Simulated scan of single mutants.
Amino acid sequence: MPAAVREGTIDAVYRTLTTADLDDLAKQRDVKVHTGSGNGNGIRYVVLDFATQPYGTKTKNADPKKALADRELLDRAVEAWPRTRLAVVRGGPHHVLNDLQHRSVAAEVVTFLEALRNDLVPAIAVGASAW
């Protein structure tokens, strides 16, 4: 993947690259490398499927309160990490880009990539909403 960035075949990388790859790419004038603070460089994705995760609705030991605990822990962790964003796809399976919500998920990814160009400041900020 680093070679494709160097050659201009792809414009963005959303998977973790090695530190050596990031250092190498940062030396190129036409490549902008964004790194974050925290546990290493990169963007992390976490998928919680409330149907199949431990204590999920489709497991034999289903317990909604225990299943929700993972999400609450993740919420607290995100609040503690600087420059972190948590997007939740309600009812989305682990393959959300191939499911009914694919357009909304793709829009969220595009919004994030656009914000990368502006030091993670989104182009659109919702001030208030009733939905």
Rank of each mutant, 00 (worst) to 15 (best):
A26W: 01
D24W: 10
A77D: 03
K27G: 14
D11I: 02
L48Y: 04
N39H: 10
A115H: 04
P2V: 08
D21H: 09
D99A: 07
A130P: 00
L113A: 14
Q28H: 14
G127W: 00
R117N: 12
T9A: 14
S37P: 07
A115P: 05
K58C: 02
V5A: 12
R15Y: 09
R117S: 11
T16N: 08
E7A: 15
L97A: 03
A3R: 10
A87N: 13
A62H: 04
N41T: 10
R103Q: 13
S104E: 11
A69P: 00
R15G: 14
T59I: 03
T9H: 07
Y45W: 12
I124T: 15
R6Y: 12
A62W: 02
T9R: 15
D119A: 10
T16L: 11
R71M: 12
L73K: 15
S129M: 08
Q53A: 11
P2Q: 14
G42V: 04
N118C: 01
G127F: 03
H95Q: 10
I43G: 01
N41R: 05
L116A: 08
D119P: 05
A115D: 12
R6S: 09
A107S: 14
L86T: 02
G40P: 05
L25N: 10
H95E: 12
K32W: 08
A77F: 13
K66S: 04
G91Y: 05
V105Y: 01
S129R: 11
R85I: 08
R83A: 14
V78M: 12
D99G: 01
L86G: 05
V96R: 01
R76H: 07
R71N: 02
Y55T: 07
I10V: 15
G8M: 06
L74C: 02
L22Q: 09
A3N: 11
N41G: 10
P54F: 01
I10S: 07
P64V: 05
H95P: 00
G8Y: 06
L116K: 06
P93N: 09
A128W: 14
S104W: 05
R76S: 15
Y14T: 10
V121Y: 02
L48M: 09
V96H: 02
R6C: 03
T52C: 02
T35Q: 11
L17D: 09
L73F: 03
Y45G: 05
G40M: 03
Y14M: 14
D30C: 00
R90N: 07
K58H: 05
R6T: 04
D21M: 09
T84E: 08
G42R: 11
G36F: 07
A130E: 13
V33Q: 08
V46R: 01
N41Y: 15
L74W: 09
P122I: 08
R85M: 13
T111V: 01
Q101F: 06
L100V: 07
E114D: 15
T9W: 00
V5Y: 00
L116S: 06
A125E: 15
P2I: 06
K60R: 13
A69K: 15
P122G: 06
E114H: 12
D63G: 02
H102F: 10
R85S: 13
D23F: 03
D24E: 15
D49E: 13
V31S: 07
R71C: 06
